[in-house]
Design a protein around this nucleic acid. Structure first.
Length: 693
DNA sequence: AGATTTTGTCATTTC
DNA sequence: ATGAAATGACAAAAT
């Protein structure tokens, strides 16, 4: 039965691969697997690869592409391998073979090439690959060449998702970021998902074949039903490698320990895993070299014709994902394979820093290594003329605009990448619709070690950066699908920025320096491992920490402080002007409001005067009317010029001689004024000036 | 080409 | 006392 399974598996593998090569998309796995594994209500959202691929910003598929599935798989694996941080010959295809050839008995054709390099217990190694996420903590350096082939399975994000002690915050954030990246760059999501979604995509593929082969096993694994999705995934992973063995071991180990899945998997699969591979790649150069040599061999087997040419090319490209992570690799020397080998350990550390959120505690040492390398590169490789030129440049007005922060940002990206890759497009591969991502450090990153920056979630940036860089490699070598539109946003953005500045017409590296601000150029010249925006925007505490923690030269510190001071002041000036403008606008508004109020009051006063005169007139008429009807004791009419009407406090009205009334009225008026403090003189004047008939 | 506006920077003050 | 923020003034770039 087991042989039959293997036979079926291999047959399916071969058939699948052949279909892939022919150009037929092989996606026989996704829907059934998803339902079988997770059910229709699974929290997982299926990655719409096919939709994304086929409709990526309206771009059509590349005619060269034989199969997008194979391409994506290869690309993903290539990226994973690149994420290992070493100078490794692309083993994308090799990894693909290994992932699927778990039975390990393939003997004929190109498959034998893998088998020749793989020991007979390929089952175990495949298990190691699938179990690797849970084994990230362990760091045995017992890995062999084949273990490195499965580094693609190891990702800190996986560890975070799977490991019980994983930081939910960082992983959640990573997931968010990668969802954003999915929006902007679906083609990179494959790789992203590996790190954030616990290797979901890869799992699907791996399981797919096994699903056909061993549907019962998968069902069984679901029946076991560990506590969560991750557990399910790991179960399935194990199923893909050796279902029957898995259940025995797994149940047995479940009985032994139920606490952590990691422990379980470690027990089950002590073979070195991805994480251990990474760690050991830092620690054990021999293993790494062995890996490298075997990769080359595999590659030669797989691609005998174009190996030599593509190898160099990929060697150069392989450094690209790490350029933003390591200052040394960001320099021109990094293009040299020899230097790459020299920087391998630190590069690997960088990669580990990149992807391992839980390993922040150990990040500083790595950063120091990187800084040292950076300083070394500066001392050895940097042209002093360039430094002096950069510093003496008279004009060099800063093009930095923090409000429009992407402008210098993107330029910086291009520039730093140009230094590293010798071509601007190397960094143009970075693409994101998320402002935060852009701002989060990609931009001005002149150097690369990102110690404190991790607090800024630069891991995501780095991840994204690597992804896009990798995609850019694909774009350049023309071996795989091209996604012309994929890079267009960035390129257009660059162009718009530079066009706006009216300087750069071509994103070539030669002219990039002119588009950098003075501070950016200074930072670049001194290999300051932080972008200008970071230096300016990072909190004071973090900034001081950064200065104290890193082995920065005095000139570097001075420049960094100047950059920060100028940047802060620039922002302050902008804010100040904005405030001033706001104050002016507010004052103008106040003036308008006051003018309107004045006009309204004038109208009201006119209205009151009019009504007052009208009342006066009526009172005058009434007065005359009253006097016309008044008669004295002799029955004669009372002369209104000699007498006046006086209203007493009790309401009684008396006819008083006017001379008495006037004197009394004056006295009363003076008392009134003092008492009531009459302010309205106009009204008093009007009242006094009233000409009584 | 000159006028005006915008922006970056420095020096100083304010908080 | 210290340092960051605010602001005036100036110069250069942009319009």
């Amino acid at each position: 039965m087991k042989d039959l399974k293997k036979y079926l598996t291999e047959g399916l593998l071969q058939f699948t691969i052949l279909l892939s090569l022919v150009g037929v998309r092989v996606d026989i796995y996704l829907p059934p697997i998803r339902e079988i594994i997770q059910g229709t209500s699974s929290a997982y959202s299926q990655i719409p690869f096919h939709n994304l691929r086929d409709t990526w910003e309206g771009s059509s598929l590349h005619p060269k592409s034989p199969d997008l599935d194979s391409f994506f798989t290869a690309k993903r694996l290539l990226e994973q391998v690149r994420a290992l941080g070493g100078t490794r010959v692309p083993r994308t295809e090799v990894s693909a073979w290994l992932v699927h050839a778990d039975s390990g008995d393939a003997e004929e054709g190109s498959f034998s090439a893998d088998q020749t390099l793989l020991p007979a217990d390929s089952n175990e190694e495949t298990r190691s690959s699938t179990d690797s996420p849970a084994n990230n903590h362990e760091g045995p350096s017992q890995q062999s060449s084949r273990s490195t082939l499965h580094q693609c399975h190891a990702s800190p994000s996986q560890q975070q998702h799977i490991g019980p002690g994983a930081s939910p915050t960082s992983s959640d954030y990573t997931k968010e970021k990668q969802e954003e990246k999915l929006d902007c760059c679906p083609s990179t999501y494959d790789y992203n998902s590996l790190h954030s979604e616990s290797g979901k995509t890869e799992l699907d593929e791996d399981v797919a074949l096994e699903n056909i082969e061993e549907p019962i096993s998968i069902r069984d694994s679901n029946d076991i039903d560990l506590s969560g999705e991750d557990n399910q995934r790991i179960e399935i992973d194990r199923n893909t490698t050796e279902p029957s063995l898995f259940f025995e071991d797994f149940i047995q180990l479940l009985a032994q320990t139920e606490n952590t899945l990691e422990i379980t998997l470690e027990d089950i699969q002590p073979v070195s895993n991805v994480s251990s591979c990474r760690n050991s790649s830092t620690q054990n150069a021999d293993d790494f070299g062995e890996t490298l040599s075997q990769d080359v061999t595999l590659r030669e087997v797989m691609f005998p014709s174009n190996l030599s040419s593509r190898r160099d090319e990929n060697l150069g490209q392989r450094s690209e994902p790490f350029s933003p992570l390591n200052s040394s690799t960001n320099s021109e020397e990094s293009l040299n394979p020899a230097n790459l080998v020299q920087f391998l350990p630190s590069t690997d550390n960088s990669t580990r820093n990149l992807t391992t959120h839980d390993l922040f505690s150990g990040i500083d040492d790595n950063v120091f290594d990187e800084i040292n390398l950076m300083s070394l590169a500066l001392e050895e490789g940097f042209d002093p003329l360039e430094v002096s030129q950069l510093f003496e440049e008279p004009d060099s007005d800063s093009g930095l605009s923090l409000n429009s922060s992407h402008s210098p940002t993107s330029v910086s990206i291009s520039d730093s990448s140009s230094v590293s890759f010798g071509e601007d497009e190397g960094a143009a591969g970075y693409s994101s619709d998320s402002e935060s991502v852009l701002y989060d450090g990609l931009e001005g990153a002149v150097g690369s070690s990102w110690p404190e920056i991790n607090k800024f979630s630069h891991l995501d940036y780095q991840q994204n950066y690597c992804d896009n860089i990798t995609m850019h490699n694909v774009h350049h070598n023309h071996t795989y699908n091209q996604f012309p539109n994929q890079l267009e946003p960035v390129r257009d953005y660059h162009y718009s920025l530079t066009a706006k500045q009216g300087k750069l017409s071509s994103p070539c590296a030669s002219g990039m320096d002119k588009n950098l601000s003075r501070d950016e150029r200074r930072a670049k010249s001194l290999r300051i491992p932080f972008s200008v925006d970071e230096i300016v925007s990072m909190p004071v505490e973090m900034f001081n920490n950064m200065l104290s923690k890193h082995c920065l030269t005095e000139s570097q510190v001075t420049v960094i402080r100047d950059i920060r001071r100028r940047g802060k002041n620039k922002v302050a000036a902008q804010n100040c002007r904005k405030r001033k403008l706001d104050v002016i606008l507010n004052l103008e508004d106040d003036v308008g409001q006051l003018q309107a109020r004045k006009e309204k009051l004038l109208k009201e006063r006119a209205q009151c005067s009019k009504s007052m005169s009208h009342m006066k007139q009526k009172l005058n008429d009434l007065y005359r009317d009253v006097f016309s009807k008044l008669r004295d004791e002799q029955g004669r009419p009372v002369n209104p010029s000699l007498y006046a009407l006086h209203c007493n406090s009790d309401g009684s009205i008396m006819v008083v001689p006017r001379r008495l009334f006037k004197s009394e009225q004056k006295q009363d008026m003076q008392k009134e004024k003092k008492k009531l403090n009459i302010v309205n003189k106009d009204f008093a004047k009007t009242f006094n000036g009233y000409s009584w008939p």
